[in-house]
Design a protein around this nucleic acid. Structure first.
Lengths: 333, 333
DNA sequence: AACGTTGAATACAACGTTGTAAAGAGCTGG
DNA sequence: CCAGCTCTTTACAACGTTGTATTCAACGTT
């Protein structure tokens, strides 16, 4: 049987509360008492029962990170940084996979698991502000990545429109004129896609270039395979673009693959740009030109916001924070 | 304020226990009573306090998955499958990052966080069987990936030696004779590395080929950057190999990159093989020939073993289970 | 009509912890 | 030597849930 405070107390010859005081670092404990208690703790290998502690304290020390898919490099890298940032607060991170389904995201937003978590960092794919309308009492939430306009929760993101505009402008500056985009989503859900598309068209328009609908390729998901399929579709039309802006890096890696199979050279024949700054892009052949958000900072800010909200639930009105990004040049564009 | 069983009970005009019975699906509840209670639950948006439930039941419904780094594709993909498999048991997965440090792994093994988790699936990098010696009472543990010889816990893995032998034999069958290996680790910790190296040398010996120490390149970590560095080091010696067996896929991707930078063609000049079957390898240029363990099955078996151990802690003696792998041919070898 | 049997609902205690309030111990200064 | 401190330790209750034992009602059987 596992040991409890009571067992430690009996062995040390003190009260249960004194042991609790030692465990929690309460200052007014005589050194010799403390020593006795610590001896007993060590001898019995006592470890607090967190369920009981949580029940009593009303906090669990666990925060959730909800992402579409933990297997995707971007989210995996993000998760790593969130785990690191949360460790600073002695928080444990529980990872929730929503698979990008509105259904599962709604469950997360509704706090199906609240009472188990103190707060949640949520990277929604499909949900809109309306879905997020806070019910009466819910664990504090920080939204990542999307600009859910004036949603009811704190929010951290990069400026997707500006970043997409920058990247497109970069391609234009390289002398490219027929610039395709892969990853458009015309559904209500594709918030990110819409923002990046907006930046793309803005840059084209600013440069006096036409927005050619046939160069805008939709992708329901943003996996490598979708990027490859999109690129193949584009090439199949016969009108070859001289550059492709993919709305994330995995799409871009898929596109690189399809271009390679088609016998086209990157960037000579077609320049390729991505978005997300994942590690893979630094080692692909060719290396990827991409928008690299400061993921570490993103995670830090998210955790900070959550901490503030936890300390004072009704403190400030919902915050909107922007995090820097960098246009990282690789060989692909 | 959040609602409790008591609030629901008052609203429905029944006892607290009756509400609890409804919540838990206890069969002997009259339909009209059940209806009243369910109405109250819905109206108050009642959700059970899991801390209290856990305290009472002695279970938390949470299992931990401890991996070196969640940002690495292999572990990210594995995590995805574990989360899916755990969902079948209504378990939530908490991901622990050990960063491959023996220190942090020991903490996990010692169950620093037990009492919060019902069990743990552990993919150790640095720990040996000795470190894992179970203390008196600890959450059930399933080991992943390494053959910690007759450790005290259940264990799932693929046959690393056989897989490495197969891959090396494959390279030999392609007509390669100077086959390098990247990823060797001569420290006590590198169990996996040692097994894969054993398979490699076994295949060479079986084919009557010499084991050339200068072709065996160590790598302290197995990231892309280490693979690139290893490959460069290999090329710098002046004696070019005609094939490279990298002990995991990220090393291989790094090696591909370094070969590309050196102006060498893959597989014409140098064949490259990896290990792990990560998604990236299907889209790299060239695509990667690799050992692809059945990760989904691996996760399923691990979860099953944990479930069995949880149901009956002292049931069977520690199990050793092997999971199939596949030599997946890509363009690189 | 008394009986056991089954079904439905309840009261109570317990899970292990910590906050509160209060008691005990040891000290200082008058 | 006692009043009035401060420091240390304690008893008790409470967090919200569920298992056990119990009560109460309704039913069919003899």
């Amino acid at each position: 049987m596992r040991h409890r405070l009571k067992d430690v107390a009996e062995r040390a010859g003190v009260s249960v509360k004194t042991v609790s005081n030692v465990v929690n670092g309460y200052p007014h404990v005589r050194p010799d008492t403390r020593a006795k208690v610590e001896e007993a703790i060590a001898a019995l290998e006592y470890r607090p029962n967190l369920s009981a502690r949580n029940l009593r304290r009303g906090r669990t020390g666990i925060i959730a990170l909800a992402v579409p898919e933990i297997g995707l490099p971007y989210f995996a890298e993000l998760a790593r940084h969130v785990v690191d940032a949360a460790a600073e607060h002695d928080w444990t991170v529980l990872i929730d996979q929503t698979n990008g389904s509105a259904e599962q995201e709604r469950m997360v937003a509704l706090g199906i698991r609240d009472h188990l978590i103190d707060g949640i960092i949520f990277s929604p794919l499909a949900l809109t502000a309306a879905d997020l309308a806070t019910g009466s009492e819910r664990a504090p939430m920080v939204l990542l990545g999307e600009r859910v306009h004036h949603g009811p929760a704190d929010h951290v993101a990069i400026d997707n429109v500006a970043a997409a505009r920058d990247m497109t402008a970069h391609l234009i500056a390289l002398g490219r004129r027929r610039i395709a985009a892969i990853g458009a989503q015309h559904t209500a859900e594709g918030v990110t896609a819409r923002l990046r598309l907006a930046g793309y068209t803005a840059a084209l328009t600013a440069a006096g270039l036409p927005v050619d609908e046939t160069l805008i390729v939709p992708a329901s998901a943003w996996h490598r395979t979708d990027g490859a399929a999109g690129m193949r579709a584009l090439l199949a039309t016969g009108t070859r673009p001289d550059a492709v802006f993919c709305f994330n890096d995995t799409l871009a890696l898929g596109a690189l693959r399809a271009l390679h199979e088609a016998g086209l050279r990157v960037p000579d024949d077609v320049a390729v740009a991505g978005f997300d700054g994942i590690e893979d892009g630094r080692f692909s052949v060719p290396t990827l030109t991409t928008i690299a958000p400061d993921k570490e900072r993103l995670a830090q800010v998210a955790v900070e916001l959550l901490a503030a909200r936890l300390a004072d639930p009704d403190g400030a009105p919902p915050q909107e924070r922007l995090v820097d990004y960098e246009l990282r040049r690789g060989e692909s564009a």
